[in-house]
Design a protein around this nucleic acid. Sequence first.
DNA 1: GCGCGACATTCGGAAAACCTGAATCTTGCT
DNA 2: AGCAAGATTCAGGTTTTCCGAATGTCGCGC
Lengths: 307, 307
Amino acid sequence: MSRIDAITLRQLRSLRAVVEAGSLTAAAADLGLSPPAVHGQLRTLEDLLAAPLVIRGEHGAFVATDEGRAVLAAEAQIAVALESCARRVAALQSGHTGNVSLGVVSTGKYFAPQLVADLRQALPEVEVTLRIGNRDAVIQWLASRALDLAIMGRPPRSPAVVAEPVGPHPHVLIARPGHPLAEADPAMPQDLLAETFLAREPGSGTRILMTRFLDRIGEGTPWRMVEMGTNETIKQAVIAGLGIAFISLHTVTEELRSGRLVTIRAIGLPIQRSWFMLRREDMALSPAGQRVHDHISALNGAFLPQL
Amino acid sequence: MSRIDAITLRQLRSLRAVVEAGSLTAAAADLGLSPPAVHGQLRTLEDLLAAPLVIRGEHGAFVATDEGRAVLAAEAQIAVALESCARRVAALQSGHTGNVSLGVVSTGKYFAPQLVADLRQALPEVEVTLRIGNRDAVIQWLASRALDLAIMGRPPRSPAVVAEPVGPHPHVLIARPGHPLAEADPAMPQDLLAETFLAREPGSGTRILMTRFLDRIGEGTPWRMVEMGTNETIKQAVIAGLGIAFISLHTVTEELRSGRLVTIRAIGLPIQRSWFMLRREDMALSPAGQRVHDHISALNGAFLPQL
DNA sequence: GCGCGACATTCGGAAAACCTGAATCTTGCT
DNA sequence: AGCAAGATTCAGGTTTTCCGAATGTCGCGC
């Protein structure tokens, strides 16, 4: 039958031009070709379909046959498809639309929704996918290229990334309301070191920060520590009075506001770190990714909870 | 921007194959090409759109980017369009569907609707357009290629046509009921020739036939004739008793059935002519036209009114 | 009826696009 | 580190496509 996959866009466009112009010569002029070229295209198309597509009508002008009209309908659909495809690609290229996946470490889950909401409003055509996981998971995603951008407390060594600080990241000591140290202003180092500290596993950024802080104020004095899996359990344990904890301020804003937890004032607190936004060094951002990146930059930390 | 009209179906199909197969080599095998060929197609497509379309995913397999997905969507639409276009063309080619215009002379308007109804039932996918006009008009339409097929009483000299008889075409003498000659069996020639004959204009086929008939039975005796424009006025005049008329039987079946008119029995009546179906000699029928032609042939006049 | 002009069509050769096989480079895996 | 599969580049040959010129066809006006 008709060898449909040998059909060419050129052939279809020639048919359209001939039917629209009514003559080969005029069609050729429209297409910027010579009449023999158009003739050849039309001829091969008719051969492929084994059907006449045009006939000479009243005034010598070419008119499409039924088959020709069927082919022209297909050509119109194809033109529309290509047109809208080109528009869509252009939109993707300009970053006006696109999909961006943003990874945030668990600690960030308290501000991430706000950030995504900001982005959605500022860049409504950009689809931002939020993935929240612990630090290792986020790094893993970044390494496997599952993420365009990531936000975490401290850039990883690998994979190679470019990092940019995007806002302050204070760390504080928390206690349950009514705790003796909550009244002190400031709390004395030796009083602090007498407490039991609830902390995350070794390797956690917060844990490292806490260790450094306690070692500095205690000048080597040992302290008691109980290890817990997640920030949530730590918070519950502090509320229950099992001890105090060193923690990212952004993790506990809700509890501080509602009064279920309080901060301990101490010299050198809060410790200011930064949140970092990062992207792989070896992979260019998509245009949409770039716009999201720029927008987060411009927010200047405005998405972080304020006390 | 993107030079969209340089895009080729080959390029689009290469993209699809690569994304489906996950590798250039496999895609090349699918397409029956060599890997460099596929690579080149993909490369030019990416250059044309100025956008990356595939990236290497997890297991080294190629995955479409957002832009790639947009292009693939277009490719799918195009494939569908071409597919259905090919099906439609095939249907037109087989004659299973199509448009056929059928011209019938005014005299045929009493059986033409029946014929078209027959055709619609037998060939439901074929669109039959009926055009009714006087003989000159039908010939004109045929000459200007506005008709695929025509039915008339006698083929014209020009344009050149091939004609085929498709059924009997009896001509009779009619009178109003109660007319003296209606009782005779048979009516005598001299009685007939004493009547007033209502007839069409010179050149009309029926008029010529009538002239020949009366000259033969009268052997040269003159007769009286009144000329009228249309068969309808002739019928009304006969009913009103203004005279008798020689007319195509198919023109008056309704009036004969209802008794408003009666036939005159006479030697040599009815005169049997034929209906002819004709098509231009210099133009092949479309497949659908051929099927209509064959079907009318096969009907063998069954569409003609029976008494 | 005849020539004329516009246009379609055919033809030959040149230019461009395309494909292939071989060579080289990348990358993932053992 | 070496290996293997596959991507990419390259050079050469084949096919496709196009153009200019020649030829054929049709309609029109004289």
